[in-house]
Design a protein around this nucleic acid. Sequence first.
DNA 1: AAATAGTTTAACCAGGCGGTCAAAATTACA
DNA 2: TGTAATTTTGACCGCCTGGTTAAACTATTT
Lengths: 224, 224
Amino acid sequence: MTEKDKQTEDKIFDAATEVFIEKGMDGARMQDIADRAGMNKSLLHYYYRSKDRLFNAVFEMIAMKMLKKFAPVFDANVLFEDKIRFFFREHISFLQKNPRLPAFLLNEINRNPSRIKQFMANIDIESFWMILFTQHKEELKKYHITRENIPQVMTILVAITVFPFAARGLLKEILAKQNLKFDDFLEDRKTFAADFVISALQNMHLSTAEDESKTKNHDEKKRT
Amino acid sequence: MTEKDKQTEDKIFDAATEVFIEKGMDGARMQDIADRAGMNKSLLHYYYRSKDRLFNAVFEMIAMKMLKKFAPVFDANVLFEDKIRFFFREHISFLQKNPRLPAFLLNEINRNPSRIKQFMANIDIESFWMILFTQHKEELKKYHITRENIPQVMTILVAITVFPFAARGLLKEILAKQNLKFDDFLEDRKTFAADFVISALQNMHLSTAEDESKTKNHDEKKRT
DNA sequence: AAATAGTTTAACCAGGCGGTCAAAATTACA
DNA sequence: TGTAATTTTGACCGCCTGGTTAAACTATTT
């Protein structure tokens, strides 16, 4: 009866995913998950042994789901600027369909940092930086982006897409006061963010002399 | 003995702040707070009645602490670009001293969205937009930033500063693989982020023709 | 059809939780 | 100093939690 097996096991998994995302590991209740799956609480333990193991299964699946979306960064023969446009368009679209994933992951990682290993076990960061740097060596040089600055830029990219979802409730409310809708905001953001970042990259060498020596200089001159 | 009163009440509050930031509302235990304050658990109820009220006091204080940092945005007679530099420098410095505040606030708001009111009760968003727009009308026009795009830009600013702290554990690990230290990353970010954003603003009109008509014209299929 | 193996259930723990309370200790006041 | 008021304590309570178990139920095999 493997058929029925998978059926109930999946029902548990799906219900657990819902509840864990909604309430978090600490706030979630096994009884709540059982109710939502429409079955007896003991079945959760029959298939997953403990709350911890059930949560880990859910966490692993969500982490993978999130990480998979970064794969296109490795595509060869694509201009850096096109990757940026593609990233913002696709990643924001993905998060529109899964708006609670960022907050879930960030919170659970902060709550239990040992899960970072679980999250990073499936990615090879070193080769990520390598591929990115070698694939776009010329373009990055043109932008005056040094090797040490790549993380700064990448963090800006991720921050711009992820943060609005992590602060979703707050941002919704703030936008509403200006008669703006969150969904319209996101739709605009797909292109605005790309234009913004590309504009910054193309022109950073004009507005700054990126020497460390300049760091604390307050008086700047008027622009051209 | 109002002196001793304040003393123990503050000890409770401080211990509660620690524990709530560390474990969150759901994960925090009254006994844990009492232990950390070095007193009997009943005293927490004597001074704060319930876990809920104690948490609310802590949440309110942290929300205010965070919001106060946005006040300089209202300063008159300061160039927009200088405000941006000031913002990144001061806000990142503030968060370096309070690195867990963003994750705490974001999580608790997501977990219980009704707290948004509590968070926003102390700020007047409408006049925030108004002041910002009128104070920097000329500069924003020069940047080709329309009224509707201001939230996009502001969200980018906040995202760039806050996200690294919300994803602190993860980012630390990622940077370590490139032999970079989180603190150095933040130090660099104070100036890099400012240069990046200002560069973007100064040159967006060059790289884009920001007509609304263009916004949705990418050769993709019609959206919903 | 009977025995076997796998699935689902209800009843039931032990421990931990937020919260209460009466008594003890301390302080304030006359 | 004596007494009233306040602060602090430990013992306690009812409830909820994750988890267990034996029995009931269902499907599979012979």
